[in-house]
């Protein structure tokens, strides 16, 4: 039995007066891949963004309940959001490299935390690019713009960029939905490798993807956590009728 990286208890989230998440209680295991699935607008992305407090950017958003990341309540007063986001990295739906060189993209997070020495930065850049399986493709053009990379390469760059902050938890919001099948395959393989070191929570629209890469799957519908369990169990023998309807393609 592993430890829990994230533990959520009675979480409710409202946008203005509209509820987006209702009484969600859920534990996420350390160093496992947990997939969040469900139809569009079911609250899975909103849920993901709770863990690094990205919902703070939305003005009307109110959150209640207890959310523990590595045992600390991240919505308690006095919590340093910057420190939280260093621990909990995030990869977005559309690859969003900064309009600067590959080198500067990766160096962004280390520089944020005060690492300025060239040797140290270069070491981090090589290590994370290597980890993201991009090193051999880009090592000769580190100082060229990251916008010149292909979509799949850009997304791996974004993963490397997130890794450079040395997080322990990695949130991925439909990381392959904007990519072609080959790039998707590369990223999935990368996720399988990364889970040895990182706790990964991934939102996906693609149920095959969830079965291929995740250890546990949570199914959301209309802001409720309908079903949560081992991926195999959820997909072969769901406990709830609604889950079965969704995974067999009857709606969504």
């Amino acid at each position: 039995m592993g430890k829990n990286a994230i533990s959520v208890k009675d979480c409710n989230l409202h946008y203005g007066s509209v509820p987006a998440l209702k009484n969600v209680t859920m534990d996420i295991r350390e160093r496992k891949v947990t997939a969040l699935i469900g139809p569009s607008g079911c609250g899975k992305s909103t849920f993901l963004r709770i863990f690094n407090r990205m919902n703070d950017l939305i003005e009307s958003c109110r959150i209640t309940g207890e959310i523990l990341v590595e045992g600390n309540d991240i919505y308690a007063s006095g919590v340093d959001v910057i420190q939280l986001r260093k621990t909990v990295g995030m990869v977005f739906q559309k690859p969003n490299p900064f309009p600067m060189s590959i080198y500067d993209n990766i160096a962004f997070a280390p520089r944020t935390f005060g690492i300025r020495k060239k040797a140290e930065l270069s070491e981090i850049i090589e290590r994370t690019l290597y980890r993201a399986g991009l090193w051999y493709e880009v090592k000769d053009r580190l100082h060229q713009s990251a916008l010149g990379l292909s979509g799949g390469q850009q997304q791996r760059l974004c993963i490397a960029r997130a890794l450079a902050a040395e997080p322990r938890i990695l949130l991925m919001d439909e990381p392959t939905s904007a990519l072609d099948p080959i790039s998707t395959g590369t990223i999935e393989a990368l996720i399988m490798e990364l889970k040895a070191e990182y706790t990964i929570v991934i939102v996906t629209h693609n149920m095959q993807q969830a079965t291929r890469i995740s250890d546990k799957t949570a199914f959301f519908l209309l802001g409720e956590l309908v079903e949560y369990g081992g991926t195999q169990k959820v997909f072969s023998n769901p406990f709830d009728g609604r889950t079965e309807s969704y995974i067999t393609g009857r709606f969504g």
Binding site: D80, I82, G114
Partner: peptide
């Protein structure tokens, strides 16, 4: 590390 966060916040 602590001081860095304090510096960033300030």
């Amino acid at each position: 590390m602590r001081t860095i966060y304090r510096f960033i916040r300030a």
